[in-house]
């Protein structure tokens, strides 16, 4: 029997002057298998001045993300992050297929399981009957062959779960942790 597919959802948020991130690993039903989060990092004023605009990307990619990935016992099959993070030029670890998933407004494809390549790094995937297809955007490090393999896993997981929902859960969990700490 093949190993069950593991999806890793990464989200980093800024709460006040602090940054914190969380990594949720789920099975193909969206049930949590592991969840790690970082302590809130509050850059000093000097650090904010010295890092300038690179502060936030550096914190999210180099500090938060790498710390969380080191904590994973088994590598995920897919590394999913928000479309905003991916569009900002994700440059993290390329050991796993990195992608963002987003609900689209496109008209449904012919049948469940159909895909449509909207760009070199963008695919539309029909996950359920009559619904709008899911938009999958891959990082530059994911070649077309790896994209196709990732689509197969997305189809399998999308049969049981809403692939975009766990990111909302991670965000809500991080916000609840900030409230709990304060």
């Amino acid at each position: 029997m093949a190993d069950p597919i593991k999806l890793a959802y990464f989200m980093a948020v800024k709460e006040g002057a602090s940054y914190l991130g969380g990594l949720l690993v789920t099975d193909t039903s969206g049930i949590p298998l592991d969840f790690r989060y970082t302590e809130p990092i509050t850059p000093t004023r000097l650090q904010s001045i010295l890092y300038g605009k690179s502060l936030e990307p550096h914190l999210k990619e180099e500090v938060i993300q790498k710390t969380l990935l080191k904590e994973l016992k088994t590598p995920p099959d897919l590394f999913i992050l928000s479309a905003t993070e991916l569009a900002g030029g994700w440059s993290g670890d390329a050991k796993y297929p990195v992608l963002a998933v987003q609900k689209s407004q496109e008209s449904p494809l012919a049948k469940v399981g159909d895909t449509f390549r909207a760009g070199p790094r963008e695919l539309l995937i029909q996950l359920s009957e009559g619904a709008a297809p899911l938009r999958a955007m891959f990082a530059a490090s994911v070649d077309p062959a790896a994209q196709e393999q990732a689509v197969v896993k997305l189809l399998e997981a999308g049969y049981h779960m809403d692939l975009t929902e766990p990111l909302e859960r991670v965000t809500a969990a991080l916000q609840s942790l900030v409230v709990k700490d304060s």
Partner: peptide, 27 residues
């Protein structure tokens, strides 16, 4: 040192389990 230092990761599965998980019905 302008470095942001290392950050500790915490296990928070209990927090995540306290949240409702939506599961879709199979066709």
């Amino acid at each position: 040192d302008p470095g942001l230092g290392s950050v500790e990761a915490e296990a928070g599965l209990d927090t995540m389990l306290s949240m409702a998980v939506p599961i879709l019905a199979e066709d």
